[in-house]
Simulated scan of single mutants.
Amino acid sequence: MRKPNKYLLFLLVTVMAYALVEYYRPRPIDWTPTYENDDRIPFGTQALFELLPSLMQQPAVKTVRLPVYNFLTETRPAGRSNYVFICRSFEADANDLRQLFRYVKQGNNCLISAYDMPDSLGKALGFKADLRTPDRADSSLRQNFVNPALKKPAGYRFSRDDGRNYLRINKTGGITVLGRNARQEPVFIRVQYGKGHFFIHNLPLAFTNYYLLNHPSSDYAIKALSYLPAWPTYWDEYQKQGRFDEDQQSILRYIWSQPALTWAYYLVVIGLLLYVIFAGKRTQRIIPVMEPPRNTSLDFVKDVGRLYFQQRDHDNMARKKVQYFLADLRERYGLNTNQLDHEFTETLARKSGLPTDQTAELVRLLRNAQKSVTLSEYDLLTLNGAIEKFNQTV
């Protein structure tokens, strides 16, 4: 049975452990200001979006997931309506603004609550969304309405805002200040444009869940929206979530929207990369190191010689020594070793290049060993010395 891959098991255990830790760990409060109408986090706007139909006395509020230009040219709302933008930065190009101006000029209303707005919008309407220097930051700065019927004696405090944002008015006619901060700087204005109005608000945080639910400033957003007439209302989500809603989102888009899934996705990708690097190559059994065959004939000769020496069978050893040496001469020089006579001696001396007297002494020892009845240890040593000397010389 094939063993399970240890790398895959490790990856699976790691992913499961991470999922369990993420599932059971306490969820920290997410203070990210998304302003999205489906976010329940403190700085989402789900609560306001759900209350808006009753405030506008409408059966429902339509969510817009298109750029301003596309929505106003493709939809062309029938009758008068409100168009609401609540976001961190209101972004619109020339085509968007041209259609938005046309929409309001025909008698509709547009509420924009954002910290950052395009200069082209401000120039056309006579204001500028500005910021004080960081040294003027004041989270305790209070906001209030100008209208005595809406004004709160103690004002409204938004502690999560640094109080640096305000609106600078560049013209006198056609602009009504609806709200100011404690520095008497405008933060909420109404600009008449044709038959309709622009409502410019510089504190989108005031419309979020945190300040709308169970907070001393919970009625601020309701009062601000009371300036809009009870008409059909369009709520923009394109500025915050793009074109696609939850039903149209791809799997990856949904994964990116969930921090836990995002980290799980990264973990899986990194694990697969490590698997490819360390275990993706072909797996096979380790090939053992095979040493080349050794020539053991010399060892065998030494072992045999040692055996004979230990048994002191000098005669047998000497005769085998002569026998093997003569066999070597036959193979090396092609000599006939049947007669170890004078002719054999001269031929061996000529072919081996040894002096004749040294060759004659070696042949004499060989001949005597063959003729002797028994050979002693001395005879063996003498014969072996002569043979070794011959081999070393040639």
Rank of each mutant, 00 (worst) to 15 (best):
F198M: 00
G196K: 04
D116R: 11
Q106N: 14
P134K: 14
A182Y: 08
A124C: 12
S139E: 13
L178K: 04
K128G: 14
T172Y: 12
N165Q: 13
D135V: 14
R164W: 05
S217W: 06
L131D: 15
P216I: 04
D119H: 12
V187A: 06
Y83A: 03
P134C: 06
R142P: 15
F127I: 00
K105N: 11
F188K: 06
L167H: 00
S113Y: 06
D162A: 09
G122M: 05
F198V: 00
G163S: 06
G126Q: 04
R168E: 08
H215L: 12
I86D: 00
N95V: 15
S113N: 00
R164V: 10
A92W: 12
R168C: 08
A92H: 12
N82E: 05
S89I: 08
Y115D: 07
I200N: 06
N181K: 07
K171Y: 03
S120L: 12
G79F: 01
R190V: 11
F101T: 01
P204S: 01
T172A: 14
L97H: 10
D138F: 03
L167P: 07
L125H: 02
G122C: 10
F101C: 08
R102V: 15
Y166K: 01
R88L: 09
I86Q: 02
P186C: 05
D138N: 10
T208K: 07
L213P: 05
P153M: 15
Y83N: 03
N147L: 07
T208Y: 02
Q143V: 15
G174W: 02
K195D: 10
V191W: 05
H197Y: 11
N82A: 06
D161V: 07
T176I: 05
D119K: 13
H201V: 01
Y166P: 09
F101A: 02
R183M: 12
Y210D: 08
T208S: 12
C87Y: 05
R164K: 08
R164C: 09
F90M: 10
A124T: 13
Y166F: 12
R98H: 14
Y103S: 01
I189D: 00
L141P: 10
K171C: 11
V104C: 01
Y83M: 09
Y103Q: 04
F198I: 06
G173Q: 10
Q99M: 13
V146K: 10
A182S: 11
P118I: 04
D119V: 13
D96L: 08
R168P: 00
A124P: 15
Y211A: 00
N109V: 10
F188V: 04
K151V: 08
N109I: 03
A206E: 07
L178Q: 05
R102W: 15
P134N: 13
G194W: 07
R142Y: 15
T172M: 13
S113L: 03
M117E: 07
R142F: 14
G196W: 00
I112K: 09
H201T: 01
R180N: 02
T172P: 12
F101N: 03
D96Q: 02
